[in-house]
């Protein structure tokens, strides 16, 4: 088991007028190799949840275990935890700060105790991994890069620490369609070759449906569903009241159903949907 969360609750600013319950009795576990999407409207507790996985929020109630690092003990090894769980924040390019891309990417490994040579080697590998031209950009200032390149450099900065688990908070936010596709493709390829487990927060249901094999649905601090995207997007019942909507593909399938056209399975990509519709049409004619 790579992540085990049990009965996790968290309240912000206890005892002040701003007191707010962010998580309430959340339990789930994730095995190595899964790609898990986390969905929920703004303020549903998704960010608070994933920040716990990295020890960025102090555990106050419940338990969190990442591999054999138990966060409920008195002094957990945060360095080891953060090296194990790579966490990419929203708009990660806003965290770049070093003089050169190479130095910036090497920041993580150096913090986690690598020597300079080891860190540089890890940085080089990570920069190549995210598809940037190492020779061309290693000595450039990160601020000279284009928007898409910056985001890749930031992802390299996380990968350089060789995390086993990658947590991504809205990895495609603010990118144009081409940039989005590229990042999603990168994540898929990393998943195959480099990191073992991926957790991805996204507001984009189409992305979640297409790229994740399991989805956690958060609403008002509670985990209200934990299932495959096919089941979660099967109809409106699970998402009703969460402020979320079905992906376009699932929506079209539902509307077809009410018109008496039934499709095989629950296709969640445009290609799969077209195929299923063609199948349904072809069966009759």
């Amino acid at each position: 088991m790579s992540i085990e969360v049990k009965d996790l609750s968290y309240t912000y600013s206890v005892g002040s007028p701003f007191q707010k319950e962010a998580l309430n009795g959340v339990s789930f576990s994730i095995s190595e190799g899964e790609t898990v999407g986390i969905i929920g409207s703004t303020g549903s507790g998704k960010s608070t949840l994933v920040q716990h996985l990295n020890g960025l929020i102090k555990l106050t109630s419940g338990s969190v275990k990442v591999y054999d690092i138990d966060l409920s003990i008195k002094k957990p090894d945060f360095k080891q935890l953060r090296a194990t769980v790579g966490m990419l924040f929203q708009y990660p390019e806003y965290q770049l700060f070093e003089e050169t891309v190479l130095k910036d990417v090497a920041f993580g490994p150096l913090n986690f105790g690598a020597t300079k040579e080891e860190a540089d080697a890890a940085a080089e590998e990570a920069i190549r991994l995210v598809g940037l031209d190492f020779e061309e950009i290693k000595d450039k200032s990160p601020f000279e890069l284009s928007g898409g390149q910056k985001r890749r450099a930031a992802i390299a900065g996380i990968l350089a620490s060789k995390p086993k688990i990658l947590v991504l908070d809205e990895p495609t936010a603010g990118l144009d369609p081409v940039g989005k596709r590229e990042i999603l493709r990168l994540i898929t390829s990393l998943k195959k070759s480099y990191v073992k487990t991926v957790l991805m927060i996204s507001h984009n249901m189409d992305e979640i449906g297409e790229y994740c094999d399991r989805v956690l649905v958060m609403s008002e601090g509670k985990l209200i569903s934990d299932n495959s995207p096919q089941n979660i997007f099967a109809d409106e019942s699970i998402l009703s009241g969460t402020g979320l909507s079905l992906p376009h593909t699932a929506r079209i399938r539902r509307m077809l159903e009410t018109q008496g056209v039934f499709l095989q399975g629950n296709p969640l990509s445009a290609e799969a949907l077209a195929y299923a519709i063609a199948d349904a049409l072809g069966g009759r004619s």
């Binding site: 593909t249 079209i252 949907l273 195929y275």
Partner: peptide, 8 residues
């Protein structure tokens, strides 16, 4: 998505 599906 709907346009993509229609074209396919």
């Amino acid at each position: 998505v709907s346009t993509q599906v229609a074209l396919l």
